[in-house]
Amino acid sequence: MKLIVLVLCVTALAYAEDKYEDIEDNFNLQELLENDRLLTGYIKCLLNKGPCTPEVKKIKEKLPEALATNCAKCTDKQKQMGKVLVKQVKKAHPELWDELKNLYDPQGKYQKEFQQFLSD
């Protein structure tokens, strides 16, 4: 019985380590979406054109890996928030979206998988 509990604990720990750190509970997605100045500031951070908040800096550090792995280590909440944000940026700031694509996927090698991710 102790062996089963130990195996379950190790499995749970391994699974937890395979995911990115949870998003802060105080992160207000709706506020970000309703505040164009704040959204633009976050995008400029990702584009290396402006200062970064600690939250966006964490995202920026993980973004290349997340793109390369189709967000394999993202939690469900992170995936959902990412989809909402991407759709808003594409709609409200298509020129900044193009800059983000050019910076993080200059050869376009992630586009097919990324479009699939957005449609799921």
Rank of each mutant, 00 (worst) to 15 (best):
G41A: 01
V89T: 07
V86M: 07
L38E: 08
V7T: 14
I23E: 04
L38H: 02
D18Q: 15
E24F: 04
M81C: 02
E99T: 07
L63A: 05
K73E: 03
L46E: 02
A68Y: 02
M81V: 14
V56H: 02
N102C: 06
A72V: 09
K60W: 01
G108P: 08
V56R: 06
C45G: 07
C52R: 07
A68S: 14
K19M: 13
L32H: 04
D76M: 08
P54N: 06
R37K: 11
K2F: 02
K58Q: 12
E21K: 15
Y20N: 11
N102V: 05
K49Q: 15
N48A: 11
G50Y: 03
E24S: 15
L39G: 03
A66E: 09
L32G: 01
K101I: 12
R37Y: 02
E34C: 02
N48C: 01
K19N: 04
Y42S: 12
L46K: 05
K62S: 09
L38K: 14
D36V: 02
L96W: 01
E95T: 12
E99G: 05
D25E: 12
E21A: 13
N28F: 01
Q88G: 00
M1L: 14
P94L: 08
G41D: 00
Q115W: 01
L8W: 05
K101V: 14
D120H: 03
E24H: 09
P51W: 05
K87D: 02
D22P: 08
C52W: 00
Y15T: 12
Q30F: 03
P51M: 11
K73N: 11
E21Q: 14
Y42M: 13
V89N: 04
E17K: 14
L100F: 03
G82P: 03
Y20A: 13
K83M: 08
Q78S: 09
E113K: 11
T53A: 09
P106D: 07
Q88M: 04
L8A: 15
P106Y: 10
D36N: 14
K90D: 02
N26K: 13
V5W: 02
Y20P: 00
Q30S: 05
E113F: 00
L29C: 07
Q107F: 04
